[in-house]
Amino acid sequence: MELTETDARLVAALRDGLPVTARPYAALGERLGLSEATVLARLTALREAGVVRRFGAIVRHRALGYTANAMCVFDVPDAGAADLGRRAARHPGVTLCYRRRRAAGWPYNLYCMIHGRDHGRVLELYEALADDLGVAEGARAILFSRRCFKQTAGCYGRAAAAGSGAQRPDGARGATVMAAR
């Protein structure tokens, strides 16, 4: 979908979130000089086109005790990767699942992120996932995160050009060094 100028402004205006007021789309429209009906119509279109992948509460998982974060990687046959990826995505604890290009010395092509409240539980979920996918021990690895050095909302493309550019008071858009994992 080709974003219109209006779409790009909407996307940029929503980067810091939807107003938490009874008629948020009207409030947003007012800020942008658009009618509420236009905002509703464009957002519906953006959502249907998959530009918006998810709409709702974005959780700061560390604040909720999800401190164990592991990237689990598997070497699976390319031909079966899509089936296994969809299967993995349904697993408890798997929050993101991608197929990625292999690299020299790195045979893995299926990536699953598992977030959990403790290290041991994440390991159990990983072992269960590996069993279910039928991937033997030599063809997989789990990489726990130790520290997060930077976490910003990605900013690119037309929306960036139209960007709000506002620095969030909590520094969520800036470089952030976090204490642990």
Partner: peptide, 23 residues
């Protein structure tokens, strides 16, 4: 929940590719 930092945001998450970007 937003003030307390339990939620980072309430709103859309975009697919980068759809915004003409890539990761």
């Amino acid at each position: 929940l937003l003030d307390a930092g339990v939620l980072t945001r309430f709103g859309p998450q975009y697919r980068p590719e759809a915004l003409g970007g890539t990761t």
